[in-house]
Design a protein around this nucleic acid. Sequence first.
DNA 1: GAAAGAAGTGAACCATCATTCACAGCTTCC
DNA 2: GGAAGCTGTGAATGATGGTTCACTTCTTTC
Lengths: 202, 202
Amino acid sequence: MAYRKTPAEIHRLTAAREHLVGCATEVVAEVGWSQASVTAVADAAGIAAGSVYQHFPSKAALAVEVFRRAAGREVEVLGEVLHGPGDPVERLARGVEVFARRALENRGLAHALLAAPAEPAVGAERLAFRRRYRALFAEVVREGVATGALPAQNGEITAAALTGAIGEVLVDPLGAPEDADTEALLADLTATALRCAGAPLA
Amino acid sequence: MAYRKTPAEIHRLTAAREHLVGCATEVVAEVGWSQASVTAVADAAGIAAGSVYQHFPSKAALAVEVFRRAAGREVEVLGEVLHGPGDPVERLARGVEVFARRALENRGLAHALLAAPAEPAVGAERLAFRRRYRALFAEVVREGVATGALPAQNGEITAAALTGAIGEVLVDPLGAPEDADTEALLADLTATALRCAGAPLA
DNA sequence: GAAAGAAGTGAACCATCATTCACAGCTTCC
DNA sequence: GGAAGCTGTGAATGATGGTTCACTTCTTTC
């Protein structure tokens, strides 16, 4: 009598879940959290509203999953660059540039992750991820201070400042449809970030 | 038959409106925008929920008024410091310090103005005010570049970075009930801001 | 002091959505 | 092939909270 899921069925279910998360991410990137109703997301995924609850216990849980997936990718990429080869200042510069470039290449999503108004659960997640960005930056800053490439400073504060500065500089461009000169923006942002950490001018 | 408001009555009305705005500000500072329902605000002001609509056409209009009043004061104070006496770098340092100190002295309100989730109308207002902060900072940075006290840079970008950096550095302390060492935080934040603008170390 | 008009009240109204649930359609198992 | 159990459906449900409105209370005017 016991009913056991066949591998194919399991695969179908997880695929459906992945598809739902993917579609939800697209909807959020396009219209923001506030407009991403359960109905809108379900429609985008081609399922009924009620079916969302086969995969997630609540809308908030789905939203958190969407956020974690997308933000997790960014943390990972940033971490790889910051832990990669090169001296601390170089890595910091590349980290900022890569982060900003990826945001500008995927504006809708970046805006949703960084700035768009969201329900409390997502807000909490945003805070948590900001701490992770901060921790990554703080590490590199402390390294730079240790090697003497950067002046003595409170690495945590500098890291928080970097996180905030990057977000704020990007907010306007993220809202605009197309930026006139992305490269110039990236150069200016990177330069500002380096100054913020006290790196000598190139 | 024409009914004309007596001066005393006009005064009473505007006083009631002021009182409402003041109470709403307190409520928002204490519980945030999301918890500040019309009923809660009306209760705090000692009036009925319906009476709110004698003074404002909608809850959003009241919220915007609350935001503008409070944020306007900060812009004004910051502007006075940044336009005050002293060389650009000194003024920048004092501006950052004064801004942060005021925020830390009135944490609830500062958090509501800078970071707390809010309805779209308030979000738009927040963006507008961030542009004003940015414009103020940009002015001083450009001055500093002109006098040679600061290295060549894109003043707008630096100003945006300063705005974001200050906000981000303050977010955590604003959430905490009481900070261990406010003065150390202020010193670190100011130092970071100066580095961000490229000012030589003190 | 009485009529007329404005402000104040708060319970009812209404719109919006997340969530549920009775039912239909498939899959598994024997 | 048929019973049992799981997934999918989408209209109904329910909670929330801003807004309205018939009514009361206060103010002005003559």
